[in-house]
Design a protein around this nucleic acid. Structure first.
Lengths: 195, 195
DNA sequence: AACGATACGGAGGGGTCCTCCGTTTGTCAA
DNA sequence: TTGACAAACGGAGGACCCCTCCGTATCGTT
C-alpha cells in the first residue's frame, strides 16, 4: 500500500524478515482497529488482532504515540500528494477544495486526529516532517490565491491549517454540518474589512 | 461562590451536613487540580487533595465525567450571564465580543473543554441544561446582528458555537494566534457571496 | 549444521477508574 | 440526653491499561 511506502523514508524500518512482517501486521491491525473501535482501543487489543505479542508491538513502536505517528505519516503524505492535482484550477477553488479534502480525511480518521492534536506542538522528527509535507502541499495554494486577490493578505497558512483542524475535530452528527462550518470559516479568508 | 450556585438547581445535592461539606470540598479540589495539573489529573489525586476517601468522591460523582459536568455547569452559567452586559452595544461588536470571551474562557479551562467535547452530543440532563443556557445567552446576539444585516442569514447559532469551540480547542503557544483564527472565522459570518 | 545477532512473547510492575462493603457519623424522635 | 437507624465515609481490591524486562525462539550467515 502506498500509505506505508510514505513512512519508509521517515522511519528506520526493522531489518529481519519476520520483523518486517510483524511491523506491517501491527500497523494494519492498528489501522483497522482505530477505524472500527475508536480512539480508545488498547495496544493489547491491537497486538492480539495482529497475532503478535505485546512485547513485539512495543519493540516496533516504543509507545502509543509512536504507533499513531507511524499511521499518521502515511496518510498525511497521501493527502499532501492530492494537492498536485489541483494545480490547474481557479486559485480559490483549489484552496477550498484542498481544505475540504482535508476535512474529509479528518472525518474518517477522527480517532487518529483526536490523539494527534494533543501532540501538535511536539517536535518528534516524524511529526516535523509531516508538517513540512502539509506545508509543501497547501501553502502554494494559499499563496496563489492571495496573489490573485482572492484571499486577504493578512493570513498565514499555519493558522488556517490549525483553524481547519479545529473545525474538523468537532464531532457532528452529519458531515454536512462540518462542511458548512468550514465554508463559513473559509469565507472569512475572503472578507475585506473596508469595502 | 456563584459558580456552584448554578449547579444547585440542576443537581440534586446531598442532604447530610458532612455530605454537603465533602461535595464542596471535592468540587473545589477538582477545580484547583484541573487548573494546575491539566486534564490528566487522577480522581485519586483529587480525593486526596480534598481530604476525602476515593469512595466518597464516587458517592457524589458516579464517574469522571460526572465530576467534569458538575464543574462545567457553574462555569457555563457564569459565561452565559456575561452576555447580558452586551445588550447596548453595536450588534456585530456584541456578538464577536461574546465569542471572544467564550474563547478566553475555553483557554483557561482547556482541560475541561477537552474532555467535554467528547460528550458534546450526549444528552445528560445537566448537559442539555447548559447548552440551553448558552443558547439563551448567545442566540439573541446572533439574531440581532442578522436582523441588522451585519451577519449573513444562512448561519445558525448552533453551528457557530461549535465552530468557535473547535477553534478554541486548538492548542496554541500564543493566545493571540487563537484570537486571530477566531477573527478570520467570524469574518466569514459577514461575507456576502454575491457582492 | 551451527552459531551469533536479532526478534518474539508474555509475566508482571505501576497506574487508573470504579465497586463493594464493613465502619463511622449525623439526625431525629423519644 | 440518649439510642437507633439511615446516610455517608473510606479504602481494599477487581478490571483494565501502558509499558519493561528477560528467557526463549528464530533468522541469516558462515
Amino acid at each position: 500500500m502506498s500509505t506505508t511506502a510514505g513512512s519508509e523514508q521517515l522511519l528506520a524500518r526493522p531489518r529481519r524478515a519476520d520483523a518486517r512482517r510483524n511491523y506491517e501486521k501491527v500497523l494494519s491491525a492498528a489501522r483497522e482497529a482505530f477505524l472500527e473501535g475508536g480512539e480508545a482501543t488498547s495496544l493489547e487489543e491491537i497486538a492480539r488482532r495482529a497475532g503478535v505479542g505485546i512485547g513485539t508491538l512495543y519493540r516496533h513502536f516504543p509507545n502509543r504515540q509512536a504507533l499513531l505517528e507511524a499511521l499518521y505519516a502515511g496518510e498525511v503524505e497521501e493527502l499532501s500528494r492530492s494537492a498536485a492535482e489541483l494545480d490547474g484550477k481557479d486559485p480559490w477553488d483549489a484552496l477550498s477544495l484542498w481544505f475540504e479534502r482535508f476535512i474529509a480525511y479528518l472525518a474518517t480518521k477522527r480517532a487518529l486526529a483526536d490523539e494527534l492534536m494533543n501532540y501538535m506542538d511536539k517536535d518528534a522528527p516524524l511529526f516535523v516532517a509531516c508538517r513540512a509535507s502539509m506545508f509543501a502541499a497547501g501553502e502554494p495554494l494559499l499563496k496563489r490565491a492571495q496573489e490573485e486577490g482572492a484571499v486577504r493578505p493578512d493570513v498565514e497558512f499555519a493558522e488556517i491549517l490549525q483553524m481547519v483542524m479545529g473545525i474538523g475535530k468537532v464531532p457532528t452528527a452529519d458531515p454536512a454540518q462540518t462542511e458548512h462550518m468550514l465554508r463559513i470559516a473559509l469565507d472569512g479568508l475572503r472578507y475585506r474589512p473596508q469595502n
